[in-house]
Structure formats: C-alpha cells, structure tokens
C-alpha cells in the first residue's frame, strides 16, 4: 500500500518514481532504453529520423562488436531498415524481430497476438516477402528491407502504395471489427498484391490463409482486397 500523498495528484501524472529496484536494471535493458531515448522513435508514434539517414545510437559505456562466435550469448548491434529508415539496435540472439519492433522501437503497429507463429497477426514484409515477425530472429533481419503496417507513406515505394491502398479499402469495406489482427492481414494482403496485382478469390484465400481473424470478418477482408486491387489497377500507375 503506497503512502498517501497529501497533495492531490492526477493518477495519470507523469511523475517518475524510480526505486532502487527499478534502477537496478541490467545492462541489456539499459542499452535498449538508450536506443529509445536517443530519439529513434518518439513514443507518441512519430518518427524523428527522416529520409534514409542512419540513426546511430552510441552506447555510452561499451561497444559490442558483432564478431562471430566470440561470445555467442552477446548482444550485437544491427542495422534494421524499416519503412525506408535505418535504425541501429542492440539485439540478443533470442530477440525476435517482433520484440525489437515493438518493445525497442515502439513500432507497435506490428501486433503480437500469439507470439508463437500461429496466427499471422505479427506479419511484416522482409524484402517484399511476408514473414511472422514473432518467430523471425532479429539478427537475421539486419541489412534487409522491412515493411510494417506503419510504412504506408514511404516515397517511391510500390509496397507502400499498395499498403495504403489496402488501408483505405479496409475503411470502405469495413475490413476489420476489433481489428487486432488487421495489421497482419494487411501485410499479407500487401505481399499478395505485390506478386499478384489482380488475384482471383481462390488466390486471395490462399494468400490470406496464414492470418486468423477471431471476429470472423473474412468477407470484409476479401472485399477490401478486391477493392484495393481494383483501385490500384485503375489508378495512376
């Protein structure tokens, strides 16, 4: 039971109250925290880095060389190219791309419904191909082009153009109810339209068969994809 403060404070106060226990965080946590506070992402969801520049986050206490097999358990610093921007982050071997996107970079548009590779809700594109980020090792994503559901306004990117067409179609055709699975659905749909701009119903089902929707909104999803495909075909491209 916390001691009652005599001054009236809003429970939502921004006051921080670190205790010795909380400040006793381990080194890895500190590294991760420093990655965030160095301004890669504002946690309100606004990207602070722009263009294709690399945001280099220096660890003030030590540099961890990514040499192979010297300390197999060591974290390594990797560069991730996400939605056209570069991020350097420190990752443990066991860090999945999903943990890094969400917990370290604040890119929470990529969801984590099952964290077991069983629902597709965490789907991202890596070099245009759909993967479940919860079972994709983060270190392996280094140097590859990653697109998340936040990547809808990347200049001169076909992926981005398809992605946003889908997102707009999702509004028109009511593609989601609770919408928890929908970022993953839309990333799978983006991969589908990238390789097949005008899919048949059967091809849509095949392409979307790795994404569960607990609301059962599959008819809305199908209609949304069909509308986006139609809009992209008839569009200026």
């Amino acid at each position: 039971m916390g001691e009652k403060d005599s001054t009236a404070k809003q429970p939502h106060s921004e006051e921080s109250e670190s205790t010795p226990l909380d400040s006793k965080m381990n080194r890895r946590t500190f590294l991760k925290a420093s990655t965030i506070s160095a301004g890669v992402i504002g946690l309100g969801g606004i990207a602070l880095s722009t263009g294709n520049s690399t945001t280099v986050v220096q660890n003030p206490t030590e540099n961890l060389p990514a040499t192979s097999n010297s300390d197999p358990f060591a974290s390594q610093t990797v560069t991730l190219n996400i939605n056209g921007k570069s991020y350097e982050v420190s990752v443990e071997p066991r860090d999945m791309l999903n943990n890094v996107l969400r917990d370290d970079l604040g890119l929470i548009g990529t969801k984590r419904p099952c964290n077991r590779g069983e629902c597709g809700g965490c789907t991202v594109l890596i070099d245009g191909v759909a993967y479940m980020s919860c079972t994709y090792p983060a270190y392996r994503a280094a140097g590859h082009s990653i697109t998340t559901v936040e990547g809808y306004n990347v200049p001169s990117s076909t992926e981005s153009q398809i992605l946003n067409a889908l997102q707009l179609a999702w509004v028109q055709e009511d593609g989601g109810q609770c919408s928890g699975c929908q970022p993953g659905q839309i990333m799978s749909a983006t991969a589908l339209l990238l390789s097949n701009p005008n899919p048949t119903l059967d091809e849509i089902k095949a392409g979307m068969s790795g994404n569960l929707c607990r609301c059962g909104n599959y008819d809305g999803i199908i209609a949304s994809i069909q509308l986006a495909a139609q809009n992209l075909q008839g569009g200026s491209a």
Binding site: V149, Q167, L168, W170, V171, G175, G176, S179, Q182, P183
Partner: peptide, 10 residues
C-alpha cells in the same frame, strides 16, 4: 467504422 483507419495503420 470510425477508428478503423487508425487501427489498420498501426
């Protein structure tokens, strides 16, 4: 649906 765009853009 009012909140759907915010949801599907993450």
């Amino acid at each position: 649906r009012r909140d759907i765009y915010a949801k599907v853009t993450g």
